[in-house]
Every structure is written in structure tokens, then in C-alpha cells.
Amino acid sequence: MNPYPADTATGTPAATAPTPDREDTVPDGRPVCRPRAVLAMHRELAGRLIDPHTLARLTALADLDPGLVLDDFGTPEARAALADAEVIVSGWGCPPIDEEVLDAAPRLSAVIHAAGSVKHHVTEACWRRGLQVTSAAWANALPVAEYTVAAVLLANKRLLEIREEYRLRRAPHDWQLAYATAGNYRRTVGIVGASRIGRRVLELLRPHDLDLLLHDPYVDPAEAARLGARAVELDELCAASDVVSVHAPELPATRHLIDGRRLALMRDGATLVNTSRGSLVDQEALVREVSSGRLDAVIDVTEPEVLPADSPLYDLPNVVLTPHVAGSLGGELHRMAAAAADELARYTAGLPFAHPVLAEDEHRTA
């Protein structure tokens, strides 16, 4: 078995913010600091991520130039901004904050990430500096869970199969007889990983009269029961479930967690849902199973992330293939920016982050 940890948002409170250079007040009269902050992300992302309301909040809370978005920390413009920056508000495309960057940013105290994983830019040097770090991973988890729940419910309703048959028949048919075993009542759904997303999926599925299974080696039976599921080993989950949904973090130990052997354990007509990372599923083995028609799949992540144009996954009628859009898309991006503004407000008020990322958890989170 490939053991893997839960990606949860627990931990000890972060340290409070340092003494400010100058003070303003919030409406109730409490003094707050107004630190210097800088945006660091893909330049074209900032306008889509931060709506006018949140931008107004950010600039009220911090001395921040909304026209300056850093995607390269090595330029003279970036070095000048980093020299006084106390907070980096980061997003997708933020360059690594390494020792050289930290040398150029002697006052940097916090990184507020308006997205999910911080592993791409928060380096070991940041933890040695003692930076406070927070992430909007919890906010990005919400649309992933919603996508997953929709996929689970429609899979049990045999949507893909019925759609194709209806398209071909275009005539009256006894659908009740043809799909007598379809539907969601008392179907079994297996959740692989009690991550933020996995837990939210379980929460959203609980009202639907489903039998929920959970595999996570870091979750005991009592905790699984509190989440509304029964804790089982992964092989049992694969064999017993009508839908298997993957929510484990991408770690060396989770590569091909769902391999050819475990796919073979899945019952005929079952559906695999993967909104985690492509590496968690043996993609070649999955292609064989779905090409045969034995399994269905809903896949938002692949390996590589954009498949070759000749991949059969694009065209198979029993596969839903989407381009890594289960997470925040369109207006959902604004939730992550609002979450970052909330954390900046806590920082300026001298409060610990509500959603800290801790150095000791980095090895076991996505």
C-alpha cells in the first residue's frame, strides 16, 4: 500500500505581525498597521483574480501599488519593491522566494497566497527566515468538491451511457427497464484521501442516501465515522465502490496509487473520478480500462497536463475529460483573492492567520 497523509488545514497559530511603521484605524477605532505589500503572480492573472471590491480592500489595508505585479524578482523594479516589502501577496506564477530574494527583501515577514499550494514558491529559505505563510487552498477546494459531487451523482445516474444511447435511438424506449440498476439511492462511493477537498466532498454527499467509504491511512475509523464514512483499505474501497474519487496529495508515495491492479479491482461499469493530480492514476492502465468500455472516467487532471492530440481520452464516449478546471474558474477566482484580503486584515490587526501553512506540514500536503 502507498501510505499518504491527509492535506488538512490544521496547525498552531502563526506569530503576530511586527510593529508597524505607521498606523491607520478601522471603523471601530482599533489601530491597525498598514504594511508595505507587493503583488507577485502572472501579470495577466492579477486583473482576473482581484475584483474591484477586493482590490479596494487590499489597498486600504496595505501600502500596495495595484499596477505593480511581479513575475520576476530579478528586475531592478522588483528589487526596489522588495527592499521595503513586508508582505508578498502571491498567486499562480509567483517566482520562487529563495535566499537571494530574501536578501533583497530584509523586511519581508509574510506571504499571503491567493491560491492553493505554496510549494512552487515558498522555499526552505522562507521557513528558515521564519516567514508567516497562509494559503487560500481552502477556498480553491470548494469548487473542486462541487465539481466532484456533480460528477459522482451524474455517474451513478449513468448520464454518459444514457446520453449516447438516446442520441442513437431518437425514439421511445423503456429507460426504466434498460437502466434498472441506475441511480444514486444506496450506491457506494469511495473517497481516496481525507484532504480538504475529500472532506468537503464527504460533507456534500452525506444528504444523498449514499454509502460512503473512505481510505486514508491517517484517519481512524472513529474519525471516518464522524465524516459520515466507513474507513476501509484501498483495495476494498476499489472493489466495493460504484464511484471511486481521488483526493490524495501528489507525493512520491502516491504516484500511481490507483494502479492497474486496483483499476482491475473496480466493478464493471464503475466510474473513476480524478480531480487531484494525474500522477496518482496509472494513466496507461486507465486508458486500457476505459477503451474496453469496462470502466467510465471523469478526469480533470492528466499526465502530462495537456495530453497528446491523439490520446483516446479526448474521444471516448464513456470519458469526461476537462482541462484542469475543477478548481477556481472565472468568477470563482475572486473567492481566493477575498480570502487573501481577509488574511491581510488579520495580519494588519496583529492576529494569527486563520489558515496558516506550517513548515512541519509541508512534507505531507499537496
Rank of each mutant, 00 (worst) to 15 (best):
T75H: 12
V69D: 03
D65L: 10
F73V: 13
D51L: 04
R79Y: 01
V69C: 09
P66Y: 11
T75W: 05
D71E: 10
P66I: 11
P52R: 13
E77V: 15
A78D: 02
P52W: 08
V69M: 02
L49D: 03
I50V: 15
P52A: 09
L68H: 10
A62P: 11
D72L: 06
R79D: 01
F73P: 14
R48E: 09
G67E: 12
D51W: 04
P52L: 11
R48A: 03
L55Y: 00
G74H: 13
F73R: 12
P76E: 00
A56S: 14
P66K: 14
G74R: 13
D72P: 06
I50P: 06
D63Y: 02
D72K: 08
L64K: 06
G74C: 02
L64Q: 07
E77M: 08
E77L: 13
D72Q: 11
D72M: 03
R57M: 03
L58P: 09
D63M: 02
D71H: 12
D63E: 09
T54E: 07
G74K: 00
D65Q: 10
L58V: 04
E77T: 15
L68W: 04
A78H: 05
L68Y: 01
E77K: 03
A60F: 02
L58W: 13
L61V: 13
R79C: 01
R48T: 11
D72R: 13
D72I: 06
D51E: 13
V69F: 03
L68Q: 08
D51V: 06
D63I: 04
D63F: 03
T75K: 11
R79W: 00
R48I: 02
P76T: 06
P76L: 02
D51F: 01
P76C: 00
L58T: 04
L49K: 09
L70V: 00
L61F: 08
D71S: 13
G74Y: 00
G74A: 14
H53K: 15
L61R: 14
A56V: 09
D71V: 06
I50R: 13
A78S: 15
D63G: 07
H53F: 06
T75L: 13
F73I: 06
D51G: 09
A62S: 10
V69I: 14
